[in-house]
């Protein structure tokens, strides 16, 4: 198992390396941020001096070499926009995104799985039809629209919840968290629900399909024949089998919720990483873009690893790293 994990990590490092190359080449093709950031009062000599100072006039391989040299020293470069180490800028915004993503995923699982289970067990009831119909809305309506509508309703009309921002935060483990204060939770609720809607619908439908598939199977009948209680049949035997595809999807979606929550973050002025990457691309802030994408690659590798470990817990037949041996 450990050999297998090590192999995964090595693969991941290789992917990261390739990614930095692609990003560097791509950014180089577009250009440098000097034309956008320089003072309109600056003279030509000043402009040339700046370009030379940043090494933007050097060939791509020299710039890439410098980047790798920095990487060896654990330095991902300094942001052209924030004048802070790129990694620091990202890590500053990571907790906000993380708590939003965790809460959104939690909501989508806690609401999605039971509803899906219900819809799967009683496919013909009116409530099931309502749930399934609602789930279509959940993944077909655009996030920004639902987000704005929720603000209009809950903040502007009813005045129950704040329209955006992070609210009061509390420091724990050296980081500011919103979910530890009542005010923070109030700020967190709308964006988290907004972010959860799509995944909730997805999980709900996956669970329902799984249940519909598993219920007629022999082992379920056997369990019933053995005289097990309905609850035990459903929650132990059925659910465990249904959850395997759900875990895969939750894992992948958790990654994308962290990496690409930009729409929700922008609408709710949530100071997370999603907006940061878009702004950085617009302003060609290369150190941030590279560092951000490296972190995202790392994140997906970790999530996939965790997902694989959860598989083995859910299904004893899946053995980590046992591929090809059976």
């Amino acid at each position: 198992m450990f050999a297998s994990i090590a192999q995964r990590i090595l693969q991941g490092l290789f992917v990261m390396f390739c990614m930095t190359l692609i990003v560097f080449a791509g950014m180089h093709a577009i250009g440098d941020p000097v034309d956008m950031l320089i003072s309109p009062q600056a003279t030509q000599a000043e402009r040339a001096r700046l370009i030379a100072e940043f090494g933007f006039d050097k060939p791509l391989w020299v710039q890439y070499g410098r980047f790798l040299w920095g990487l060896v020293h654990l330095d991902l470069g300094t942001s052209y926009i924030f004048n802070q180490p790129a990694l620091q800028v990202i890590v500053q915004r990571l907790p906000a995104t993380l708590e939003l993503a965790v809460l959104a995923t939690l909501i989508s699982v806690v609401v999605g799985v039971p509803l899906g289970l219900y819809a799967g067990l009683r496919p013909h009831s009116a409530l099931s039809r309502l749930i399934m119909g609602g789930s279509i809305l959940g993944f077909s309506l655009p996030t920004f629209w639902i987000g704005m509508m929720m603000i209009m309703l809950f903040s502007v009309k009813l005045g129950w919840l704040p329209s955006g921002g992070r609210g009061e935060t509390l420091r724990a483990l050296g980081v500011e968290w919103s979910f530890l204060t009542v005010d923070g939770l109030r700020h967190l609720l709308l964006p988290a629900v907004n972010l959860a809607l799509f995944n909730m619908s997805l999980i709900l439908r996956l669970t329902r399909a799984g249940v519909a598939e598993v219920m007629p199977m022999d082992y379920v009948r056997l369990a019933r024949a053995k005289g097990l209680s309905n609850g035990r049949v459903i929650f132990v035997h059925v659910l465990k089998n249904v959850l395997i595809p759900v875990v895969t999807v939750v894992g992948l979606e958790f990654g994308s919720v962290i990496a690409f929550s930009v729409v929700t973050e922008t609408i709710y002025s949530w100071p997370g990483m999603g907006k940061l990457i878009i702004d950085s691309i617009n302003l060609l802030d290369r150190p941030i873009i590279v560092a951000y994408l490296m972190i995202i690659v790392l994140l997906f590798i970790t999530i996939n690893l965790v997902v694989d470990i959860i598989y083995t817990l859910l299904d004893p037949r899946v053995r980590f790293g046992a591929r090809g041996k059976s």
């Binding site: 704040p162 921002g165 922008t266 002025s269 100071p271």
Partner: peptide
């Protein structure tokens, strides 16, 4: 001073009194 990048959200923040 709060940054609110989205135009619609900025207007909503004003209307809601935030």
């Amino acid at each position: 001073i709060r940054p609110i990048a989205n135009g619609g959200s900025r207007v909503a923040a004003l209307q809601s009194g935030d």
